[in-house]
């Protein structure tokens, strides 16, 4: 598998003392052509990771490769092929929409003005309006327009739909998916809206306190995380073919387990140990996300 983004044992520290924030031994692998959803609570290190990938920050140690080139050494070449939508609109707010586009496009030789014009119409953006006068939704649309019209090979989107209404979110994601279908570009997107990522991503990464907890195909993640309702639990858990994330005793003596890496044939593990699985419950991404965070924090 070839990767659009790859990091090995990436370390970074911001701040000092008790307030210091660390990204620790981050090894991230984003396959080429994937829509990779980056999940994590506030302050988990998603934005810091994006900034490290794009050479906006310099790592303390470790290796970063983006689009086959080493970062931060090759940042000029990599940034020319990367569309970036940061957490907050970053193009100077005193410029009008037209001025922002005119400024931005001069830096990108691959700029597609025809498509930019189409997106302008699609997003209903007024060219002569100052960015500081744009609504949050309009500002988000402009950021996406600027990133997409570069015709990038990689899109790094840091909560691009955060705080936007459902209609604007849908417009933005439609434009994004149309582009991805058309170009097979790689997308690395973070969001708090777990259901949104569930709909559009085919890979998922989960971050907490600067550590990458999970990195796997979305389908595997969703199918592999289950809540098991056990009438009786096995005493011996050695050689379990799954990972037990958490266990809760219920009043009637039964137990609820949260497991990762579950497949259908694993019932035999329980029957072979005299235990009974009463029910296997599918979890959606959000439930899986919350449970993994909970178990990770309990083990810290």
């Amino acid at each position: 598998m070839t990767y659009a983004v790859e990091t090995e044992k990436l370390n970074y520290t911001a701040g000092r003392g008790e307030k210091a924030f660390h990204v620790t031994d981050l090894s991230l692998h984003v396959p080429k052509g994937a829509v990779f959803g980056f999940l994590g609570a506030n302050g988990s290190g998603k934005t810091t990771t994006f900034r490290l990938l794009l050479a906006l920050l310099k790592p303390d140690s470790g290796r970063i490769t983006v689009l086959g080139e080493s970062m931060p050494e090759e940042y000029v070449s990599v940034l020319a092929k990367t569309g970036y939508v940061p957490e907050r609109p970053h193009v100077y707010p005193s410029l009008t929409v037209r001025e922002a586009i005119d400024l931005h496009r001069t830096f990108y030789p691959t700029w597609d003005q025809k498509w930019a014009d189409e997106l302008l119409g699609e997003f209903n953006l007024v060219l002569d309006r100052k960015q500081s006068a744009l609504s949050k939704g309009e500002a988000g649309k402009l950021q996406m327009l600027l990133a997409l019209s570069q015709r990038p090979e990689l899109l790094v989107l840091d909560e691009p739909t955060d705080g936007l209404d459902p209609v604007v979110r849908r417009d933005l994601l439609s434009a994004l998916l149309a582009y991805v279908n058309d170009t097979q570009a790689t997308v690395l997107i973070s969001s708090h809206l777990v259901h949104e990522l569930e709909r559009i991503c085919d890979w998922i990464g989960l971050m907490d306190h600067g550590n990458l907890l999970v990195e796997m195909p979305m389908q595997e993640f969703k199918n592999g995380i289950k809540r098991l309702r056990l009438a009786s639990a096995p005493a011996d858990l050695s050689n379990a073919p799954f990972t037990l994330l958490s266990r809760e005793e219920e009043s009637n003596g039964s137990q609820q387990w949260l497991v990762r890496g579950w497949t259908d044939g694993m019932h035999e593990f329980f029957t072979g140990r005299g235990a009974t699985v009463r029910e296997v419950v599918d979890l959606d991404l959000e439930e899986g996300f919350v449970e993994i965070l909970r178990s990770s924090r309990a083990n810290r």
Binding site: L79, P86, H90
Partner: peptide, 17 residues
């Protein structure tokens, strides 16, 4: 001033040295 207020994020994300 405009770069400073935006913490230079825009300038740093541009493909120029």
């Amino acid at each position: 001033g405009h770069d400073h207020r935006g913490r230079h994020v825009y300038a740093l994300s541009l493909p120029v040295t």
